[in-house]
Structures are given as C-alpha cells and as structure tokens.
Design a protein around this nucleic acid. Structure first.
Lengths: 236, 236
DNA sequence: GACTTGCATTTTGGCGCCAATTTTTCTAGG
DNA sequence: CCTAGAAAAATTGGCGCCAAAATGCAAGTC
C-alpha cells in the first residue's frame, strides 16, 4: 500500500494516547459517521494510526464489542457492527421503555434550574449545527442530548445503559436513514426541555415517546434483511 | 502456601475450559455467593484453578469489569465488586423501571402457553430449593427467574441488560442482606406467573413492582457508607 | 518498645515472537 | 476467457519473558 505516509501523518507526534482515549476516539468516529458500519478495524492498522502497540488495541476492541458497537469474528478481526432491522427495533423499543422513566426521574429530582440552562445551551448548539448543515455534528449532538438527560437523572447505571443505546442508535441511523429527511427532527428536543421547564412531567414523557417514534419512522426499516441466506435449508 | 495440592485437585484433568466457560464459571460463583464481595481475583491464581494460561484470564476479567461485577484497580489486580448503597439503590431503581416494561412486552407477545409452563417449572424448582433450605440455589434461581422473563420478552437487548442487573443484585444481596429474613420472598414469583396466566398485565406489573420493593426493603441499606474519606478536602 | 526507612518478594502490565487460520494471488487446466 | 486449485502473504490468536509497581517483611533508629 502506498499510503504509509498518511498513516505516519495521522499518528500523534509524541502524544502517547491512553487506552481510554483510543476507546473514546473510535467511539466518537462511529458517532460522527466517520466509520461506516461494516468497516474492518484491523489491529495493525489501528495500532499504526494511534501510534501504539498492537496489544493496546487488543484491549480496546473487546470493550467495544461488549457494547455491540463492533462485531468480533474469530480469526477474522473486528468490524464496525451492522445492526439488523430486528436489532434496530429492539433498540428503539428499549429506548421507549427507558427514556420516559429517565425524564420522570429527572423532574422528581427537583432543583433543575442549572440543568435546564445546560440543556438549553445544548439545544442551541444543535440548532446552530442544523443551520450550518453540519450533518456529523447534528447526529453526534442528537445522541448527546439523550445522554445528557440520562446523566442528569441521577442514576449512573441508567446513564451507562443510555450511552450504549445512543451509540447503537447512531449506527442504526447510519445504516437505515432515509436520504429524504435529515434524521434529526426540528425542535423536538427543545420542546421536551420546555415541558421540563414548565414542570409538566407527563407532557415531557409524552413528547419523548413521540420523538422516539418520529426518529424510528424516519428510518427505512422495511428493507428485507440482506438475505439471511440459510444455505442448509435452501438446498434441502 | 501449602495448598498447592488443592489447586491441582481443582484443575480439570484434561478439560481445557473455553474462555466463555471461565466467564460463566466466575459469574456463577458470584451468583451463588461462593465468591464474597471484595475477594481478590489474582491472575495466576485463577489461571492455576482453571488450568489455563494467565493470558486467558486476562481476557475474562475486563469483561466482568465492564459489567461492574468486578472492580479493576490499576497495578493492583481484580476484586469482586462491592456496590455502594447508592449503587444498590440505582440498581433497584433501574429494575423498577425496566421490569414492568418487560412484563408488558411479554404479554403483548401473545401465545405464552409454552412460556408459562417453563415459568411454572422454574417456580416449582425455586419452591423445592426453599424447602431444602438451599440458600445458594435460592439466590441463584431467584435471579434466573427475572432473567427468564426478560429472555421471553422477545428483546435480546433488554435481556442482556437484565442479566447485568441480576448479577449486580446478587452482589447487593450478598453485601446488605439482613440476617433476619431469607431474602427470597415466598410465592411472589408464582403470583406474577399467575397474573400472566390470567392475562392480567396490569396486575402482573403491579406485583412485579411490589416484589422489587419487598426485596429492597429486606435489605439493610441504612448503614453509613464506609467513610468516603476524602483526604484532599479533609486536610485543606 | 514503637516507628520509620529500606529492601525483597509477589503480582500486574506490556512487548515481542511464533503458530494457526484466513484471504489473496498466481498458475494450470478446461 | 473463465474457472478451479494451490501456494504465498497477511492477519489474528496465544504464549512466554521482562520491566514496573505495590505489598509485606526486616532491620535500624529514636
């Protein structure tokens, strides 16, 4: 390959990236749709890119695999996961179950003045990204909004689960987004924040469910699965 | 140490345990309260016990750490996790959010005749273990009941999350169980199955929430945290 | 006699090498 | 010209060795 120079160029000069840093970097790349689903994540390749040894990479990949963000095939390597249509429905189903509860816990927490200003700032950033047509920022911040809500709900466990669901949702959008509409619906995040500011928990949860339904409906989940070719049964 | 013979005795003669097998074995030991919270999980110790190389162990421990079942201290080793009181409350809070939804999804699935027989069999096994006063089996099967429900709900993602929550619950019971009452409440699992059999989703979810509340109330979560000695702030 | 300091042992962390499997390419045949 | 087979290259998986850090012990000192 003749792009050895490019690898060298991307390796940090004398910054030894920590293990968590590599983890976050790969996750961020997936979040921003810089790594397409199905992309092979070769060990040597990644080691060269980050300027670390292969052993370091071999610690990070299983971690990502455990969150179903990468798929680990024995003796073949790691690939960015390709959630099936069934997986996608499961993710949205789980989110419809979790996120209304997260919103409820957030309002029950009381004293959400400082949280509201942070949420408003985030929504404003989203609006700016949308105005600039910065697709990567739009998708990333859209996921971050939901992660922010979860972190504010005061339950670190739920926040961790929400992080994982947000990552998977990013992959799903990358795979099944209809080219027609920009996947991020206008001001629905802002509407949720407004309901929270009004202390109307019921409306906030209802808006959250509707929002999730809208996002899912804007995906093309009707496509037949990439032919689950079951040779054994097909040739019986 | 003079117990080198005991290690050898426990090592499988000529059965090379797979990586998943080791994972499951350690998890099972935690489930059955054979490994107390805080126990150190030395690498070559485990390697000797399972008769595998240290490298194999070094792949399993991070996996368990990712589920918060073991705590990984840099340069110190792996320990069975010791969830704090706050962690415990978070776990039960998350379960109160998830499990009613799981029950709902189960009934909406329809055709639960075969599932009901399996659930009834499980409840019967639990009853038998309770009659035999087999504490380990009681705790293990109590967690397995909830995992079974989640797997039947038709959402593999929710099932995975429930598995993790069940593991953590086992640790929490091991840490905070009041010696007074056996932590597993009589026939509450059976009552939930009865409600499912009657097709009464509302009652089933209500019973589930009550059940979780009962389990939590039977724990001693009032103990003051082991003094989160924050030296920096204490000596300012 | 108790505390501190220094050293030895044990354990984890990391790096490099070698074997196994897969994928690609080259060659021979139809 | 295309297909099937085999050899070669590349990549993953695993094992062992070596360095770094932490713990426990022992000796020295006040």
């Amino acid at each position: 390959m003749g792009d050895a120079s490019k690898k060298k160029a991307k390796a940090r000069r004398r910054a030894p990236p920590s293990e968590d840093a590599i983890y976050e970097r790969i996750l961020a790349a997936i979040f921003e749709h810089r790594l397409a689903p199905g992309t092979k994540l070769g060990e040597d390749r990644l080691a060269g890119i980050f300027g670390v040894s292969r052993a370091r990479i071999r610690h990070v990949l299983p971690r990502l695999a455990h969150e179903s963000v990468v798929r680990l095939e024995p003796n073949r390597g790691a690939f960015v996961a390709q959630p099936t249509v069934a997986d996608a429905r499961n993710v949205f189903d789980a989110r419809r179950l979790l996120e209304p509860g997260i919103v409820e816990r957030l309002v029950q927490r009381g004293e959400l003045r400082p949280m509201l200003v942070q949420l408003r700032q985030h929504v404003a950033s989203e609006r700016r990204a949308r105005a600039a047509n910065d697709t990567r920022a739009i998708v990333r911040m859209s996921g971050e909004f939901h992660m922010l809500l979860a972190e504010m709900a005061g339950n670190a466990l739920l926040a961790k689960i929400m992080r994982e669901l947000a990552s998977l949702t990013c992959l799903i959008i990358a795979l099944y987004d209809k080219p027609s509409v920009p996947s991020c619906l206008g001001e629905e995040h802002g509407d949720i924040v407004d309901a929270l500011a009004a202390g109307d928990a019921a409306r906030a949860t209802k808006l959250m469910v509707h929002h999730l339904n809208h996002v899912e409906k804007n995906l093309d989940l009707s496509v037949a699965e990439p032919a689950p070719v079951d040779l054994e049964s097909a040739l019986a």
